[in-house]
Amino acid sequence: MPAITRWYVRTSMVYLIAALSLAVLLALAQVVELPKLLQAAGPVYFHLFLVGWVTQLIMGIVFWMFPKYSKERPRGREGLAVATYILLNAGLLLRMLGEPGAAVSVSPLWSWVLVLSATLQWLAGMLFVANTWGRVKER
């Protein structure tokens, strides 16, 4: 298993724990009064689960297991896989801060945190598609 796949897979497991822990807090908010910060965390939960866990795990495994791109570059451009990892996780972490921040504060800082988060995650998706497309081929 390549080093970057280990990063993807291990990080995805951390996100799964974080997502389910947040789900516990969201359930707790139904029974006791919790800060407004948490009430805005629903979308964060879904994205930690589906982007941080599911999509990130898929990305790591695809980079490892899909057919070889070429003899010289069997997994395509490894730099793109590293960039995807960094962009995806930076974008997700910014979202974790930006969503609750924007819910409790009127500061424009949080608006731009969300815009930056959107841009980084979008770039991650595009780089993953670009690096994977050439490896989806008939034998």
Binding site: E99, V115, A118, W133
Partner: peptide, 25 residues
């Protein structure tokens, strides 16, 4: 799989537009 990659790119694009809109209103 190629269709799934196209949907990934499209879905991420829509998501990014909505998240940016959430920030910029």
């Amino acid at each position: 799989i190629k269709a799934s990659l196209i949907y990934l790119a499209t879905g991420f694009t829509l998501g990014a537009l909505m998240l940016a809109n959430k920030g910029l209103r």
